[in-house]
Design a protein around this nucleic acid. Structure first.
Lengths: 129, 129
DNA sequence: CTTGCATATACCGTTAACGGAATATACCGA
DNA sequence: TCGGTATATTCCGTTAACGGTATATGCAAG
């Protein structure tokens, strides 16, 4: 993971929003989809982009893929993620993402057995640590 | 100058080296050319790329164009330039650029009336503040 | 006003990012 | 095994970055 590759990953707003959200903790694809309000394929492809370059890690849980920031980020990555947090801390789009994330967490915590799409209770739920 | 645009500017090694060098002070194109050892057109185009996005400023002096970092950088730019400095401080390529810059400055200070190409003394010299 | 140097721009080919549509895969519950 | 949900991948068209070659512009010395 080179410095240039890090910057390449930071060149897209969707990826910036994903990275910003993941700094508050791991998320599955459908939750990202809900928060960012973007089509699944778009989220999925940006996550693949980030994963192949080592900016995020993923683990499988049932049929969800849960994405998170690396447990051991390089010095360059850590520095740039910190810088990103600083840069977007007052940005409306990123703040709204945070808010939506909190609302979603609250909904999940309230035991509403809904994962993402709010279509039907399914008895299943992505469990985030 | 958006945050995304800043990251786009940071995606290329030549541009990173230019920005890193400019943090130690302004430079003209031919000096950058000498330090980076890259063709003139490449340097010039990357400088134009940076200039149109507000990452560098330029002023004309005789027939030299002298490039520098913005006198009033945005918060995002300042943060990312600081981050860049931190990230490359131990990188061989960037350190070598610094060394070459110092050698060049010493040569100029020693009154060798040569601007860049070392071809012929011309009696002219780019004067850096 | 011509010559030479410094710099910028136009043109071209190659490559990769990006988004969307469609499809494939994987897993779970019934 | 079947249907549905979550996610990934393939295909495709558009766009922009990048590097190189050639050329143009601007300026200064003589």
């Amino acid at each position: 993971m080179s410095l240039i590759q890090i910057y390449e990953c930071l060149c897209d707003e969707t990826r910036l929003r994903i990275l910003h959200l993941l700094q508050a903790g791991e998320l599955c694809v459908c939750h990202l989809q809900e928060i960012l309000n973007e089509p699944q394929v778009k989220i999925s492809k940006h996550l693949a982009y980030l994963r192949t370059r080592g900016l995020v890690e993923s683990r499988k849980e049932a049929n969800w893929m849960i994405y998170s920031l690396p447990t051991k980020p390089s010095r360059e990555l850590a520095a740039n993620l910190a810088c990103l947090q600083d840069c977007v801390s007052e940005n409306a789009v990123f703040r709204r993402d945070e808010t939506k994330r909190k609302q979603m967490s609250a909904r999940i915590a309230a035991e509403s057995p809904v994962c993402c799409s709010q279509k039907k209770p399914s008895g299943r739920k992505a469990v985030l640590k």
